[in-house]
Computed example of a mutant assay.
Amino acid sequence: MEHPVPDSEGGAPVAAPPRPQVRDLAFAAPLRWLARGARDLRAHPWIAAFYGVAFWMMAVTLALVFQHSPEYTMTIVSGCLLVGPFLAMGLYEVSRKRERGEPPSLPDSLTCWDRHLGSMGLLVLVLTVLELLWGRASLVVFAVFFNTGMPSTASVLQAVFNPRNWEFLAVYTVVGSIFAVLVFCSTVVSIPMILDRDTDAVTAAITSFGVVLQNTATMLLWGALVVGLTLLALWPWALGILIVGPWLGHASWHAYREAVGWDA
């Protein structure tokens, strides 16, 4: 419920804004989010197709970077993790409007972010710093283990599948996992939360971390499903991203709606 606070000028009490409340989630909740996301996708396939093409172009860019400059692959991956959630904001808007019984449209989904410039700008800044640190850490790992120069695509594949390079694989995996977890925890519900309530970026990020900490097993399942479906969608030629990308975007909105309540 709303809590009245005294007016700064001694007038009548003013109702405080509602505060986010992290809810307990069932372990199988991510399956429900995927089912609801699939319904949103089927309801507006042409909007989903637009965003699917955008996600597919990101996947193609990643593949080209890996082929020609593999040492920058993790930098591009982190960039995709930065751009992807904001691109998905348009899909959140479609699901939000559909939930309210309002007709969604592609132009509205493309401009939904402009009403939240302040909060989104600060969150972009934080994620950009994480992305730059991730990319730099990735280059440092390559430089340490490939001291004769940055590897070609062939030598990267040889390193990945060579058991003698387990130290490189272990360090590279640990470094990447740390930054991936930070990005996941800070964005899992923060962006749809900003879209829904115009919450400030700090509150949204803290709430997002709270959702993960309070429902760790459920959110681990959700993260595994996101990663697993994305990897499956990359074969062949990343064509599955055309469907899986918008599907996960819609499902992420329902993840937020079920994970975060409001006290008013």
Rank of each mutant, 00 (worst) to 15 (best):
S109G: 05
Y172R: 09
P104C: 08
V181F: 15
S78H: 09
W262L: 12
G37Y: 05
G228P: 00
L110T: 07
H68M: 09
S252E: 06
W235R: 13
R257E: 10
A49W: 03
L62F: 12
D200N: 13
V141F: 09
P20K: 12
A259W: 00
F55N: 13
D196A: 03
G37V: 12
D24E: 14
A43T: 08
A12E: 02
N147Q: 13
F179V: 04
C112N: 08
F179A: 02
L221V: 13
I47N: 03
W56L: 02
V53F: 03
E167Q: 15
G52L: 11
W262V: 08
R23W: 04
F142C: 00
V22Y: 05
T148S: 12
L169T: 08
H44V: 03
D24Q: 15
W166V: 15
A233G: 00
F50W: 12
I241M: 11
T187L: 06
W262E: 12
H116V: 01
A29N: 05
P151K: 11
E2P: 14
S152D: 06
L62I: 01
G90E: 11
W46H: 11
A28G: 05
V212D: 10
A16W: 01
V227Q: 05
D198M: 10
M150A: 04
P17M: 04
A35S: 12
P236L: 00
S69T: 15
T111Q: 07
L221R: 06
L82C: 05
L125F: 12
V226T: 08
L87F: 09
R98Q: 06
P163G: 08
L106W: 07
F209C: 04
A217N: 14
F66G: 03
E2A: 15
M219V: 10
L182H: 10
Y72W: 13
E131A: 10
F50R: 13
G11I: 14
A63R: 13
Y256F: 04
G240V: 08
S69I: 15
P20T: 04
R100V: 00
W247L: 13
E258L: 12
C185M: 09
A154Q: 15
K97W: 03
P4C: 04
L62T: 06
G210K: 13
W237Y: 09
T199N: 02
D24K: 15
I194D: 00
V60F: 05
C185Q: 06
L242P: 04
V144Q: 13
R197T: 06
R19P: 03
A264Q: 11
A251V: 03
P107I: 12
R23Q: 08
I76D: 01
V183I: 15
V144I: 14
G228F: 07
S252M: 07
V189K: 12
E71G: 02
L87A: 07
L123E: 15
S138N: 05
L195I: 10
F146T: 05
R36H: 08
L239F: 01
S109T: 09
